[in-house]
Amino acid sequence: MKKFKFRFSRRAFAYPYMIFLLVFVVVPLVIILINAFLDDNGKLTFANFAEFFTDAGGGLTVLGNSLIIGLVTTVICLAIGYPCAYLLAKYHASSRVLVLLFILPMWVNFLIRTLSTKAIFMALDVKLGMGTVLFGMVYNYLPYMILPLHTTLVSIDHSYIEASEDLGADKISVFLKTVLPLSLSGILSGVTMTFIPAISTFAISEILSSSKIFLFGDAINMHFSKTTNSFGVGSVMSLVMLVLVVVSNVIVNLTSKDEEVKSAL
């Protein structure tokens, strides 16, 4: 029998991480995959898929809602984030502190942030509902939109803008025909970094709507909680989520194939 001989090479430095990946990423994924095909008694079944895709437990509706809310959140984040990132990039030298101010909320745990937001809304006597949930989502994910946009906009070579002016473009045309297309990769990664977490988020909607609005993340969370104990359906939903993430990433990577800035996810 051939003996396995351990040779210490540079590759060895990767082993700890490989083991980490195996234990904490691959194994859980496999468990989820297996769980999706098991019923409560541990027998092989497709019932979990049937339950989810026939919307028996309202899973599809929740997914639909989540996608819509995720989309609206992303659009609002882009609408606020792009002008912010653009101005920050334009007045580059003096804007370091400003960028920091936009990023600063990311340093506070998002649960604390969300609970404080709720407290403020309560104090102001604002009715919790869709409006407050969207506010919470935008507030939470705006930095993830601004950061990649700012990075891309700052790295646009000024000579492109000059070339554009030189060829007869006024300020609006320079923006529409040069800056905007050149920042497309930033928009894409900003959108992915906002949209994917937004559809899978939990807690924000629960806290900021007093559990009236229920999103996909909340649904998965609920299925795995002790009271419902329906791991099978929860696993199917996790897989659906996974497929959505993979699909979004593939789309982003395809569209920004030639660009230097790939999706940061």
Partner: peptide, 12 residues
């Protein structure tokens, strides 16, 4: 019109 040092051709 200008021909730029590093050409500044639009990559998009």
């Amino acid at each position: 019109n200008t021909v730029f040092q590093k050409y500044a051709l639009f990559p998009h």
